[in-house]
Design a protein around this nucleic acid. Structure first.
Lengths: 222, 222
DNA sequence: CGCGGTAGGACGTCCTACGTCCTGTGTCCT
DNA sequence: AGGACACAGGACGTAGGACGTCCTACCGCG
């Protein structure tokens, strides 16, 4: 890490090859590779077979496996708290950001959201995940906070994957579409409070679904 | 990861030794070690020299290096946006959580916060970081959201370390103490709105300090 | 001019050997 | 008998070499 920062390399730039790192750092190739493997896991470098090693660009996608692992472990032990925590963080972040979105989003942003929402409604339950995720992305993309985008995407992925591990009550597709439309309506009227309230409702439903699962499958406390 | 989840291991439990993993997975020790090194970076396993390998407990501390790396890289290139993003996320999370804290914290929690704040004031600028961090931890520890605690601690660490990289305007110690006391007062009167407002003020100051740095040292946009 | 084969670089995997750290056991000294 | 030290064993850490796979670039051939 210090080497990259010290040599003025930027995201996407190629790192020295393994043999050169061996000489530069005075260690064997095994150690170099293990270090790179660790950095790769953290998203600091991007290793491409037969091509080279490059400075990474996305910091947070890399922690999805770690978070996912612990969540799955918790769910596997019938402890719903990890899922509740994730949903609470999503609710906190989105409730705050949606206020900015209500103020800052322009007509073309709104139009894109309408398009995505129509696609979500049309696709039915099959292709649902993709459009739902994309909708939440489009909500906050114009705000210019790359970290927020990555965090929300991260938690979305972790939640969705973990959810798949548990035999959960089916989601009401029509209800999801309706809630999203209400959020969009609040955005169009540039009403931060209403938008935040709608988002809060959405997440309250999600939490309720987790409680339902916890009640019939787990201990309720782990 | 699948092996751990599949064999009903929990956090803290020991993993099979490297030779056994070689046999179980049918790969060489190098590959086993590189895989473990990646999992270690993600906080999924905890490797202890001469002792053994264990299932990890803290999921998020592991992504500090990655986030830290990208933030330092951004600051080094005079791009303050990464820092602004981090502070905005802290503000979003803490503003939301502080409302729950205002309602749920008991007298003994408040007492602990007073103690920590006194220590912060007494220590002056030298030991400041530790007490400031601990204060924010104590605020949200009773809420039972382990993920939130880890995220806040993570962002706190990343922000503090990155801040150290830039020649920044000094923080007004007395002002920090005063702001924290105001937050605590709002908590004692169980007033969520006031607490959230005080926290928002605190973070507004932090953001202002970043803008000051950006204005005199960077491009303002990278 | 276009296509396919070939050479080189870079990462992926494997094997072997030795070093370091920790623990448990056994012996020796007190 | 009790405690300190030495030793052996297990587990992770590091090193060096060899070969395989993937990708790119170059060159000859049609």
């Amino acid at each position: 890490m210090d080497l990259v920062i010290g040599t003025d390399l930027g995201p996407g730039d190629p790192l020295p090859a393994e043999p050169e790192l061996m000489r530069a750092l005075g260690v064997s190739r095994n150690s170099v590779r293990e270090a790179l493997k660790g950095l790769q896991a953290l998203g600091i470098v991007d290793i491409r077979h037969g091509y080279g090693t490059y400075v990474g660009t996305a910091a947070l996608r890399s922690m999805a496996p770690g978070l996912l692992f612990h969540s799955r472990l918790a769910v596997r032990r019938s402890n719903p708290q990890a899922l509740r925590d994730i949903v609470e963080m999503r609710a906190l972040m989105e409730s705050g950001l949606i206020r900015r979105a209500a103020v800052e989003l322009g007509p073309e942003d709104i139009a894109r959201l309408h398009t995505e929402l129509d696609a979500l409604e049309a696709d039915g339950d099959s292709g649902r995940a993709g459009h739902d995720r994309r909708f939440h992305e489009l909500l906050y993309e114009p705000l210019g906070n790359a970290l927020a985008l990555q965090l929300i995407a991260l938690f979305w992925d972790v939640y969705r994957t973990t959810e798949a591990d548990m035999a959960k009550p089916r989601t009401d597709h029509a209800q999801v579409v309706r809630q999203h439309r209400q959020v969009l309506a609040a955005l169009e009227s540039h009403d931060p409070d209403a938008a935040a309230a709608r988002i809060a409702e959405h997440f309250a439903d999600v939490t309720a679904r987790i409680d339902l699962w916890a009640g019939r499958s787990g201990t309720g406390q782990g």
